[in-house]
Amino acid sequence: MLRIERLSGGYGPTQVLRDVTLEVPEGEVTCVMGRNGAGKTTLMRAIMGQITRSAGQISLQGQPLQSLPAYEVPRQGIGYVPQGRRLFGAMTVAENLEIGLMTRGKGAQTRETVLALFPRLRERLDQAAGTLSGGEQQMLALARALCLDPAVLLLDEPTEGLQPSMIQLIRDTVTTLRDQGVAILLVEQRVEAVLNIADRVAFMEHGRMAEITPAQGLVPDGAIFQRYVGV
């Protein structure tokens, strides 16, 4: 589905990503792990066309993405839930969803499907997104991305700082989407969560893809986590 090959890039002249290769197949959850500053967020931003890419290829179902302007990338069906949510805080919940729907010209039907997943948002459609609780904001960030009816979903630490019941809701949503065939790239730092949800785990270190391994057979206190995440 989504394929990243020998990708290098960074912020202006500062190179962060070095020769990264990764495949994100449909109907699977690919988790990215790595220490703070390893380049996980930068990888997501590179896929979205937000940073300078100096070498390599990114393709979606065989179609190259890296030559497209950044605003065309989501239109190909890539939904993005950025780290820290990045909602349009001064706009209402309904308007945030509308932005998501407009991306690929989706209408009332998609909106209903998304709102059915998050009934709490339906009760708060006219509330400013910035005044939602942390958990509700994360729901909205996810809902906004789902408004694209995406084929690929990029999630950057979607459960950071949330309470267990909210984490469970987001995890359930991700599993449902996976079962519907969405290709999911998930940055997640907690080993227990990764073991629960991942089909494959990619470990990043200093901007490089250090190791990619099936999640099956990984154990919570495995040396690999010790090595790349330090737990």
């Binding site: 066309g49 937000q50 950044a70 990338v73 950025p82 990045r86 349009f88 706009m91 932005i99």
Partner: peptide, 22 residues
């Protein structure tokens, strides 16, 4: 819609781009 797009751009242009806004 034009106003919505302008306000989104005003708030956060990188995220606006990530949602298809030119």
């Amino acid at each position: 819609r034009a106003g919505l797009v302008m306000r989104a751009t005003q708030i956060d242009r990188a995220t606006a781009r990530a949602f298809g806004i030119n």
